[in-house]
Design a protein around this nucleic acid. Sequence first.
DNA 1: ATATTGCCTATGGTATATCATGGTAATTTA
DNA 2: TAAATTACCATGATATACCATAGGCAATAT
Lengths: 157, 157
Amino acid sequence: MRKTFLFMDTIYNKVDSKGRVSLPADYRAIVKELGTEIVCYRSLVSPCIEGCAEDLLEKLAAEIEDSNDFFSQTQDDLTNLIFGDAKRFSFDSTGRIVLSDKLLSHANITDMAVFVGKGRKFQIWNPENWAVEEKRIRAEVLKKRPVLNWNKTGEKN
Amino acid sequence: MRKTFLFMDTIYNKVDSKGRVSLPADYRAIVKELGTEIVCYRSLVSPCIEGCAEDLLEKLAAEIEDSNDFFSQTQDDLTNLIFGDAKRFSFDSTGRIVLSDKLLSHANITDMAVFVGKGRKFQIWNPENWAVEEKRIRAEVLKKRPVLNWNKTGEKN
DNA sequence: ATATTGCCTATGGTATATCATGGTAATTTA
DNA sequence: TAAATTACCATGATATACCATAGGCAATAT
């Protein structure tokens, strides 16, 4: 049985007064397997926290390095934004990370958080906001259904 | 069990009358792990100090040597500027470096400094200037979002 | 089918270690 | 020898690591 490294599912966990949240057990297993750590940052486009395994950022840094573009303006801006906002979060022996106020307030999270799998990444939402967002996404996808690759490849009809 | 060496996050530290600043603990850990030292120089394009682990400059130097098609005149000039300006900064037992007046005045830093992670590099800003710069960057990057490598990286595979 | 056992996860609480920072001594340099 | 630079010590605040408990799920036994 082959192992995969995809963040999946939707998990609701409590956030305590110190900002501590249990990282879902499945997520922890992935991180442990990869031998890296979790990195979180404010989503650029949504009121939510985004996270991924550190090696994804490592890949990004490597790409930038290899591009022989030590002085590019765009890359300069991009790296500032991503790496300036990102932060490593290691979990304690019970599997919890402590989210910073910056992240929590960006996502309007107070006492409850929703982890939403996104494959290589995942997101952390305020439950109410996620409920709205999920509806929006479902509607959006249905509208575009006829042109989605997914339908052509996997699910005829 | 650290596998990656990325400067991240945004950290505010105080600068005392002698120009001493604590290098953020995470940054120190990276330098220690790499077995090199910090190198700082005046940013060529922004009113800030730029820093990296010494081995990144090593790599830059190697690239110049090895490239057959030589770098452009401009890039050659730029690297000259960097190496001419760069200086090693070792931190004391409590983790502080002493920034020179040249660097401090270039970044308009007096009593407070902001460390901004950039992956392989990091920057040190005057807090007010960084606030302005961050806003500018966010707007800029959002405009270009669709063509950024970052998105491709995340979804690949 | 029901009950029992045991493991794992989520969560509350607390002790401990680490960090940033002020101060001072030792060393260098001019 | 004076000034400047560097290395070391001390402290409070903060974040981190650890301990303990409760609830849920699964496997096994009744």
